[in-house]
Amino acid sequence: MGSVLQVTLLLALAPLAQGVTQSVKARLQGRRGPLPWQPYAVALKLLRRQAVWPQGSTAVMRAAPFVHLAAIAVAAASLPLFSAAGASEILLPLFALALARFALGLAALDTGTPFAGLGSSREMTIGAVVEPVLLASLLPWAVVAGSTAWPALVQASLGMGVFSVVRLAAFAAAFLVLVAETGRLPVDNPDTHLELTMIHEAMVLEYSGPPLALILWGTWLKQIFLVALVAVLVFPWGLAGPYGLLWTAGKWLLLLAALGVSESLTAKMRYLRVPAYLATSLALSLSALALQAAGVH
């Protein structure tokens, strides 16, 4: 029951999180930008519109937005956000995110247009490299805990010094993956519709109306889920205390703002150099793991 409430809350907050990042970005660029609740309006507008499907597309394209959203919802449900008791395995989100990616990648090829194919090819390529890197970013905690259950991981993180080298390296690694997985600069550009640079946007280009709203909502949910994941793993304090909610909200806001700042400071990277970028994250994770094995805390 707790996890259902948790998913509902995250679903409700996901657009707001996107709006916060967007307005941070706008401020840094010297614009006033839209209000943080603009994404709700966007989704509402799309939900009222008619869906237009490309000729020749099949049930695969119709079903993909639902599979995408449901898979990410399952991932979001597995987090120990408010209490460790209801939490599940760290492996579940990994597999669920892979399912979400597979659904959209396949649906893109269903359209038969070169743009979607291009997006699908790029997304699946990056996804293939992201998966081990994402797993690696969880390793510093999972190996110490000797378990893949969330509560054990949080305990492992709590047992470590606040400003330990391990925590810093693990945070850097996790942040690099966070940027890649939320489709932000320098990996992907969420604001563009230029075929040379876009990845995710190209993949979903043929979607419109309510299905597009579902996809956008799923992507926003994935973003807030990943932010919450980093928050709970790397900064696990104050989960159960009286001000738990406040702490959590504060951590999320900081991380979302950090995402906006980092995106404003970086330029798009050439697509084929993304694996090198992800390898940096891998190296950081593995050094954190090695430091821990060597007894540094």
Partner: peptide, 18 residues
């Protein structure tokens, strides 16, 4: 697992869809 995902999106997408 990641590479297999890419491979089967290719196999199913190019072979059966589009």
């Amino acid at each position: 697992g990641g590479l297999a995902g890419a491979c089967f999106v290719k196999a199913a997408g190019v072979g059966f869809l589009g």
